[in-house]
Amino acid sequence: MTTLRRVFSLPEFKTISLVAGKEGIDRTITGVNVTESDDLAEFFRQNELIVTTGINMANDLTKLMNMVETAYQRNACGMVINTGPYIPYIPESIVSFADQMAFPLFRMPWEYRVADFLKLSVQFLMTVQNKPMNRDFVLSEILFNPDFNDEDMKTELAKRGFENETTYAIVVCELPNHVKHQESIMKILDKSLNDHYERTLSTVFKNQYIVLVDTFNQGVPHPSFSKIVQDVYQRLEQLDFTTLPLIAKGENYTYISDVKKSYDEALKVIQLNRKHARYQIYSYQDLGAYKLILGARDHRTIDKYHHDVLGKLYQYDKSNETDYVSFLRIYLEEDGRTTNISRKKFIHRNTVLYKIKKIESILNMKLDHNFTKTTLTLAFMIEDLRM
């Protein structure tokens, strides 16, 4: 990965100037997209640098503004405007928008050929992206090559200090787009993991920082993984991080062939935390009843259970534009306490009681029965794990 700052520090680009959005100069860049129409904005990809001469805009600066806004909305890393006969100048409204959103906006003089910029920037990105990261090929091979040679990987891991008689687990951390933040997060997570695990091995894949940890404790118990995560969060908060990354750990496994399973489990925990951060579950081991659902081999039975329990309520909401499904989830979360539900939904207690009766009528269930609560909770747990 590399940043806009690194790309535009190349001496070949010295005539290209940053005119707005300087606060975002450390955004990650993964590609370059030359486009000449705001109608093609749907093809913009995350972390791409958008380049345009405006040849198809017929001097319509409204279309240019639309392109800039769409590029920002689609998480492009920035935009280069080749000023000249088609875009004589960059309007102040666009400069103001880019500054406000910390969206880097560059002015490239007409004399600088777009083809030259494209060639040089793409060559640089390919050089950076093909540069191997320290020791990461082993973990990437284990996780993403289904045909990896087990004995070869054992040999490679042994070179890195992993004993043959050990247990492995995967830790996944979702990284933000800002490269400086990525570096801080990886450094702090590495520190915390190395404090508690004998050996680690890491790689970066897309927006994930992935760490293989040696979980064999040699008689010394490891702290709970939630404690490790809380330690990471505490350190990040001291650096004024307002948004904390999602971090999760899969189960421990003895065989290298099961490491991919640990990775998939960590992703499931992240998926659950994205929906329900308040659960504060960071380890697959702590998923409780969710593990029973994930371990079920017949997914059709699981899906049928969800439909049988909640299907009627979903259909009623769809036909009558009501919100009984979301209300029911809150009812279960608050264990039927009407005062809490009333406060959470900003509705009168009598309305709460009416909705309870209505749901009981639709589902033909008594909501205050423990068996009913368990049945409904399990259906919502199935829903939580759907992608």
Rank of each mutant, 00 (worst) to 15 (best):
K261H: 11
D240L: 09
V269K: 06
A248T: 12
G250P: 13
K260T: 05
D258C: 04
K249W: 01
I256E: 04
F241G: 02
E251W: 00
G250W: 13
D240K: 09
V269D: 02
A266W: 11
E265L: 15
R274W: 05
Q271W: 01
S257G: 07
N252T: 11
N273G: 15
L246I: 05
S257N: 07
K268D: 11
Q271S: 13
D240Y: 08
I256K: 07
N273F: 02
Y253I: 10
D264M: 10
I256S: 08
L267C: 11
Y255R: 12
D240M: 03
D240H: 10
I256W: 07
L244D: 06
K261D: 08
Y253A: 05
L272W: 08
K260A: 10
E251P: 07
R274F: 06
K261N: 12
L272G: 02
V259E: 06
K260G: 01
K249V: 05
D258H: 13
T242N: 04
V269H: 03
G250D: 08
T243A: 12
N252L: 03
D264V: 06
L272D: 06
I270V: 15
L267P: 08
L246S: 04
F241K: 05
Y253Q: 03
K261I: 12
Y253D: 07
K249Q: 12
D240A: 03
D264R: 13
E265T: 14
S257D: 08
Y253T: 14
I270E: 13
G250S: 14
N273R: 15
D240S: 10
Q271R: 10
K249R: 14
K249L: 01
I270W: 07
N273K: 14
Y263N: 00
K261Q: 13
S257C: 04
E251Q: 12
N252W: 00
F241I: 02
G250Y: 13
F241D: 01
G250I: 11
P245V: 02
I270N: 14
A266D: 11
A248I: 12
P245H: 04
K249P: 02
D258F: 12
Y263C: 00
T242V: 08
L244W: 00
F241A: 04
L246E: 01
G250F: 13
A266R: 07
Y255D: 13
T242L: 05
S257P: 00
L246W: 00
F241L: 02
F241N: 04
E251L: 05
L272E: 09
F241P: 02
E265R: 13
E251T: 11
K268H: 13
Y255T: 06
S262W: 03
E251M: 09
V269S: 08
G250E: 09
L246G: 02
V269C: 06
A266Q: 08
V259M: 09
Y253W: 07
Y255K: 12
N252A: 14
T243C: 09
T243N: 13
F241Y: 11
Y263E: 03
E265S: 12
F241Q: 04
I256G: 11
S257Y: 00
A248V: 11
N252I: 01
K249A: 05
L244K: 03
Y255P: 00
F241S: 01
S262C: 05
S257W: 00
T254H: 15
L272V: 09
A266K: 06
Y253G: 05
I256C: 07
V259P: 05
D258W: 08
Y253E: 06
E265C: 08
E251H: 03
V259T: 01
Y263K: 02
Y263P: 00
